[in-house]
């Protein structure tokens, strides 16, 4: 059964009662909230997610309205079981807060994975990782490839690497878009479904796009790394790529990892293997369709295993 199989009434009942249990990638989330904004957002963006049995959850999430501010500019507070890691936000942002809260849960707790701050997509069995500081155009490019290029979404924010085999564990979630990129993606993919845009968050305006149902159906499928592209959007720039060397790539991946130091030597070997087997490049662009075409061509080429000198480990 998936979320869309529940009537809107049943969905609200579960959310305000014992909780909605669903599978998100390798995790089971239990979500509780009486807030309409949360229920509406979930009904829209999580329609394709499989329901889980109501007996176990990795993350127990609750979005509640602090009682004192019930009437005057109401707020929402995020609870991760007994913890409240954030200050409350205006209630308008309740659904976005759920998304940020779940990101926090994964990045804080899922230390069985080496976690990179990067989007990750897959085509023809090969994965493309897009690390990036905010503002670099990572989410826009990721959304463009998913909704305009038919790539499978593994994650728009958190790349989960299994240290044992270096494979990427999918964690497809609604794609977070900000400010101008919301319009860009709406024009590129008129069929894509968005949660209502919330203005004036700490990141500007924010909307979340529902992941393609194929990405959710295949959310248990891991992928093997093939490319790492460091996107940089620059208005008016011609498409331009520049190779990133193995040592540079290793350093930059480590920099983007949330929990690199926790994994010690395993973390180092995992990223070294990654750096040696991936084709990595800077990717400067301004025209999204042109960028999508570039990656389409990349994905259709037969894979060439890069030859590097074996590094002493």
């Amino acid at each position: 059964m998936i979320v869309a199989d529940l009537s809107s009434r049943e969905l609200r009942r579960r959310l305000s009662d014992d909780g909605l249990y669903l599978h998100s990638g390798p995790f089971i989330c239990r979500i509780q909230s009486v807030l309409a904004k949360v229920a509406d957002g979930l009904a829209l963006a999580y329609a394709d997610y499989p329901l889980a049995d109501a007996d176990y959850a990795d993350f127990h999430l609750r979005l509640a309205a602090p009682r004192l501010r019930r009437w005057i500019s109401p707020q929402v507070q995020f609870h991760a079981d007994v913890r409240q890691p954030f200050l409350p936000l205006p209630q308008q942002q309740a659904y976005a807060m759920f998304e940020w809260g779940l990101n926090w849960c994964v990045s804080q707790h899922a230390n069985q994975y080496l976690i990179l701050h990067a989007a990750v997509l897959e085509k023809n069995g090969r994965a493309l990782v897009l690390p990036g500081h905010s503002g670099a155009g990572k989410s826009t490019l990721c959304a463009g490839l998913v909704y305009g290029g038919g790539w499978r979404l593994l994650s728009d924010e958190l790349t989960l690497i299994r240290p044992a085999d270096g494979l990427i564990q999918a964690l497809p979630r609604p794609v977070s878009l900000k400010n101008a990129s919301i319009e860009v993606i709406k024009q590129l993919a008129p069929g894509a479904i968005f949660t209502p845009t919330v203005m004036d968050t700490s990141k500007g305006s924010v909307a979340h796009a529902k992941p393609p149902s194929d990405s959710i159906v295949r959310q248990q499928e891991c992928a093997r790394l093939a490319w790492v592209a460091f996107p940089r959007y620059r208005a008016g720039a011609a498409l331009n790529t520049q190779t990133v060397s193995v040592p540079q790539l290793l350093m930059r991946l480590a920099e983007q990892a949330f929990n690199y130091s926790l994994h010690g030597q395993d973390g180092f070997s995992t990223l070294l293997n990654w750096a040696q087997s991936a084709q990595a490049f800077e990717f400067e662009y301004s025209d999204l369709p042109q960028a999508i075409a570039y990656f389409e061509q990349l994905a259709s080429q037969p894979h060439t295993q890069l030859q590097h000198e074996a590094a002493p480990v």
């Binding site: 390798p26 995790f27 176990y56 990795d58 707790h109 899922a110 230390n111 069985q112 926790l262 994994h263």
Partner: peptide
């Protein structure tokens, strides 16, 4: 399995 993963995460930390 899900419990194993959580215990493993705690051990790594």
């Amino acid at each position: 399995m899900p419990v194993q993963a959580r215990l493993q995460a705690a051990q790594i930390q």
